[in-house]
Design a binder for these strands. Structure first.
Lengths: 251, 251
DNA sequence: GTGCTATGTTTGGTACGACCATACACCATA
DNA sequence: TATGGTGTATGGTCGTACCAAACATAGCAC
């Protein structure tokens, strides 16, 4: 986390008076307060200069920072577009660093393992507390799976959709955003996974089993089926870059 | 060098050839490859100008971007310090946006709820697969709690330590980083929570119960105790900013 | 010799001005 | 009216200059 180490000699000599920070803060405030609506465009840089009484250097630095935080979108020759921060923004910001972390073998494994943990509790939650509405969504997804067994690309989409339902059930916007993040980050590696109607059928059966267990209000079975499902998928992905020590063990 | 052959009507008209990006990528590579070790300092800006044959404007923009990604640390009048990215870096990057999201009431609630979900699966995992070593850590923590019942500040620390153990058990570095993030983001709000030796004792008992259930290899009870524990804590925090609709219901 | 101070150098932060390429609005011509 | 050329606004880049703080060094006092 942020290094908050005060220098041993005194309290806070830092208080970095970077001029751009003031602009960043000001724009941030305008965004969260709604003065700058989502989708609105920022004034031209030369106008911001006057507005904040700063040089273009500083204004541009502020824009760079805000872009890095995902608060504005900055295409080369267009005005910056305001993007009101949400949970998806949060994951967006992580994307660049995540890409670096995923380049190491253990990175992908760790990320996938975390997904397994999350989905384990999500299926348990579903089995325990899913409402009629959720069950309906959860029922529709596997049937769509079944219809696209022969089209691996389509199956991949409906496969993802099934898991997406799990992330919606808690009603917490963090989870759908998290699912989106897993999807984006894992997708490049899943692309390389061999697919076949037979393999799709196995996955479909897993989804059906999980769905059945949820309908039965049986969290233990639901979790067990999910773990089997995800571990099996991992084995397929692992085969595309097989190395020792990437195997998920059950401890 | 830049591709100018994309179809003008479709696809990606962007292909932004921002000069700073090249520097960013280059430095990123040097960091992950180890050419730039963690803790090393970047060359002076005027040296980087020559090295990349770019203007200082561009060099400084690259540094700003890298700082935003948490890959370098940039104090006002010092050389930028290289920080090899890890999972904690990941959470660091989210900090600024998270701060904005937490300013909305539902932000805190959503974040805390996600923590409950995560810890639910963590205690289940602990009850199922914790090794002797983990159990030992888990045993030590509550006893430290007990010793600091009368010192609320100390108790808060040991309280956090107990939960930290849960995040260590899976052996996945993502979880300790996540715990650190929860700690930092939730801390300001927990600060405002009223504390007392009696309240500390209640929390201690919860920890003891969770610990006992884990030792008994009883994930259901462990989860139940944890949920009670965390929901109870939430009620105390909620009291500091009471508004309707922030109550956590069990659906 | 040791320790402190004054001074010059390095370096990041900021400002200003200039130029380029392109998106876009505008206008003139067919 | 449709089309194509033109001018302007705007972001991207460059170069220079200046300031203030950090750092290195030399010089001074003891």
């Amino acid at each position: 986390m942020k290094t908050e180490n005060d220098t041993p000699s005194s309290a806070l000599p830092s208080a970095s008076p970077r001029a751009a920070d003031a602009i960043v803060r000001s724009v941030e405030l305008q965004i969260v307060s709604g003065d700058l609506a989502d989708g609105a465009t920022l004034p031209a840089e030369r106008d911001l200069m006057q507005q904040f009484n700063a040089s273009r250097t500083v204004v541009r630095e502020a824009i760079t920072v805000l872009t890095g935080r995902g608060l504005i979108e900055n295409r080369p020759r267009y005005r910056p577009i305001v993007r009101k921060p949400g949970y998806n923004t949060l994951l967006d910001v992580m994307a660049d660093v995540t890409r670096l972390l995923l380049e190491e073998q253990s990175g992908l494994k760790n990320l996938y393992e975390s997904r397994v943990f999350v989905e384990r509790i999500l299926v348990r939650e579903a089995a325990t507390n899913a409402r009629k509405n959720d069950i309906a969504n959860l029922t529709a997804a596997p049937s769509l799976n079944k219809q696209s067994l022969d089209d691996s690309a389509a199956f991949y989409r409906t496969d993802t959709d099934f898991h997406a339902v799990l992330y919606q059930i808690p009603g917490n916007p963090i989870f759908p955003a998290l699912h989106e993040a897993y999807k984006v980050w894992l997708h490049p590696h899943w692309e390389k996974m061999p697919r076949s109607p037979e393999r799709n059928y196995v996955n479909y059966c897993s989804h059906a089993s999980i769905h059945a267990a949820i309908v039965d209000r049986d969290p233990d079975t639901a979790e067990k089926e999910l773990v089997n499902h995800l571990n099996s998928a991992w084995e397929y992905v692992r085969a595309t870059f097989d190395t020792p020590s990437t195997k998920i063990t059950s401890r």
